[in-house]
Design a protein around this nucleic acid. Structure first.
Lengths: 153, 153
DNA sequence: CACTAATAGATGTTACTACATTAAATGTAT
DNA sequence: ATACATTTAATGTAGTAACATCTATTAGTG
């Protein structure tokens, strides 16, 4: 369904306005779908994101601040996200020997197991996108990268 | 800057994964920028969205449920958003004569004035997007529309 | 060294979102 | 008309995000 129909707006001021609204609308849709999926596994999308970052480290400990750097949403409160993972025993926290301010975080066996359980479903989800071609996907990605370059204030 | 650099991830499993992450990342960026802008005018992006919808009605009253239908984020609590607009005297609420369950909402003079004040800045913001061509913008929009069609569960 | 600035992460506060529930009005079926 | 379901909006609640502040530690400078 076109964005016009979805938000019942007949005309846009420009292709750029349509795009801006469409990006927000599509991402909301995407996040809602993800939320629906992750809640079945008692985890939030943000928490999943942290787990993925932890697994990416191959059991090398990673500092909280480094996790934040790799997050999609840099504003989120990583410290408390890690708390949630600790409670569920999906991650471990140990103090960092060479900088006692820092805290090292590692994924647990249980965390790895959860991710492995989710992997096929996540892949399946992503493959739903192949309604567009890989080239088209790359093209949008490139344009999105370009969009964020208007950053120069 | 490419999404790879921004979130320090070297490889993606597929163009689709890159796109999914890029969409979320770019929209976060977009929403943050919008938030920064709107907070200068003591209004949230959601509230602005409602005001725009109200103005679109040309002073015809509109029901709360119809506002929700036109919102980008359908889950948001329109009732409370309208509350905020009332407090700031940007909107009026009157009970609907032919359906006493419903509530009619209209934008006030003050609301219109605020929007007019914001208009040039919003346009300027959208024009920053012309770092890509209008055709490219339309192309992404079309692909986003297509993406959401994988909706068929 | 003492002193100040900077950094890392935890925590308090406020506001908002998501979700469920409620209350009133309306619609529908018998 | 009565009974029951549905719609509409408001509200209660729990969880989360945004933002500021706090504490501990480290870095930097005279």
């Amino acid at each position: 369904m076109s964005i016009e129909t979805d938000i019942k707006q007949k005309k846009f001021r420009s292709p750029y306005q349509r795009l801006a609204l469409n990006l927000v609308y599509t991402t909301n849709w995407l996040e809602y779908k993800q939320h629906e999926f992750f809640k079945e596994h008692d985890i939030s999308a943000q928490q999943y994101n942290v787990l993925r970052i932890l697994r990416g480290q191959q059991s090398n400990p990673i500092k909280v601040s480094d996790i934040t750097e790799r997050m999609l949403d840099k504003n989120s409160n990583t410290s408390r996200l890690v708390d949630k993972l600790l409670i569920k025993n999906l991650a471990k926290r140990t103090s960092c020997p060479n900088d006692r301010r820092a805290v090292d975080v590692v994924i647990t066996e249980e965390g790895l197991k959860l991710l492995e359980e989710l992997d096929p479903h996540v892949e399946e989800w992503e493959n739903r996108f192949n309604i567009i071609t890989p080239e088209e996907a790359d093209h949008i990605s490139a344009l999105l990268d370009k969009l964020r370059e208007s950053e120069l204030e």
